[in-house]
């Protein structure tokens, strides 16, 4: 189900398969929400009751906002609940969004984001996730539109068995385009698991900066954390910065990280061309191949389609 927020107009209330989605005035009356989140008026609350599993993805679509716009999403997934949510941005000016996700025991949250703002727009986002026992949260983000974008992500794995998988892809292609990723994953408890895979393709004079930090608290024994960040530069003037960090205070943990910045392999390019594919087609195939593993991690068909549509547009320009 798609909820379109056109020119900043938030619908007051929705009901999807028994789940309530509220705009602020109604939500204020609901005692279930933490007081701290009643900070502004542009807030969307999503509350998934215990044991409710939403089959179809929810889709928040922001369009055509032509003035600076602030938005706040609060998602509470109660025990044993399941939700798939896609945030999609297609605005013309400045978008500023804060998303908070609370995943209770055994909850499953699939959170995806497509940042496809206008090439003159800016996008500033902050995502914070709190997870309880055995909860699983999947995050996928595609960042490609805005002239300047910043993504702050903070993950807190509070209880045993919580797992968070983060995937992201950022194809940048404009001269002035800039993207920053700041990701913090905090392992507070034993047997928690996190995984990060972010890939960027940078063309022209675009720039990206990635900082991913995994922090393992003293109590968080037997955790697993993997982090990788890879880049493909298509021009000599593109710049990709990558700074993986690990800070570990617990014993017996399994942590890895890796970062690369590379170019198209000339041997692979020659191989494809020697078989008859022209240069443009070969480049397209090789860049698609670079992105394939991270894109394949998105299993939801609806979101996959939205991503493919966005990328097809990107390729045609």
């Amino acid at each position: 189900m798609t909820i379109t927020i056109l020119n900043g107009k938030i619908p007051e209330k929705f009901e999807v398969e028994g789940v309530m989605l509220y705009a602020l005035p109604r939500a204020r009356e609901q005692s279930i929400f933490p007081k701290s989140v009643f900070s502004d008026n542009n807030t969307l609350f999503l509350y998934i009751p215990k044991n409710v599993r939403l089959e179809k993805p929810l889709h928040f679509l922001y369009q055509n906002n032509s003035k600076q716009y602030f938005s706040h999403h609060v998602i509470i997934a109660n025990e044993n609940s399941e939700l798939t949510l896609l945030e999609e941005y297609q605005n013309n000016h400045a978008m500023n969004v804060t998303t908070e996700i609370y995943a209770s025991k055994n909850a499953r949250v699939h959170f995806a984001k497509i940042q496809n703002e206008n090439s003159s727009a800016t996008h500033d986002a902050s995502l914070s996730i709190h997870q309880q026992e055995e909860s699983v949260v999947n995050v996928f983000s595609l960042s490609n539109g805005a002239r300047s974008a910043r993504e702050l992500i903070k993950i807190n794995l509070h209880e045993r068995g919580a797992e968070c998988i983060l995937n992201g892809f950022y194809p940048l292609k404009n001269d002035e385009q800039k993207l920053d990723y700041f990701i913090d994953v905090n392992h507070h408890a034993k047997h928690t698991r996190s995984e990060m895979l972010y890939k960027g393709i940078l063309d022209k004079k675009s720039k990206s900066n990635f900082r991913g930090k995994v922090f393992v608290h003293q109590a968080a024994k037997h955790i697993t954390a993997h982090q990788s960040n890879h880049h493909l530069l298509l021009s000599k003037e593109a710049e990709a910065g990558s700074k993986p960090e690990l800070e570990i205070y617990a014993d017996d943990v399994k942590c890895t990280h890796g970062a690369t910045v590379g170019q198209i392999d000339p041997d692979a390019l020659f191989y494809l061309r020697a078989r008859g594919l022209d240069e443009k087609e070969s480049m397209k195939l090789l860049t698609a191949a670079f992105a394939a593993d991270v894109l394949d991690r998105m299993k939801n068909n609806f979101i996959k389609n939205q991503i493919n549509m966005t990328l097809a547009e990107y390729c045609h320009e």
């Binding site: 191989y271 061309r273 078989r275 240069e279 195939l285 698609a288 191949a289």
Partner: peptide
Amino acid sequence: APEERAALGLFLAFQYPVEIPGVNNMYF
């Protein structure tokens, strides 16, 4: 260009065939 030579009917079986992760063999 290499692809134009290929179109004329030239084929090189490589001494070291290149591994190309992410590109499906049949699609290629």
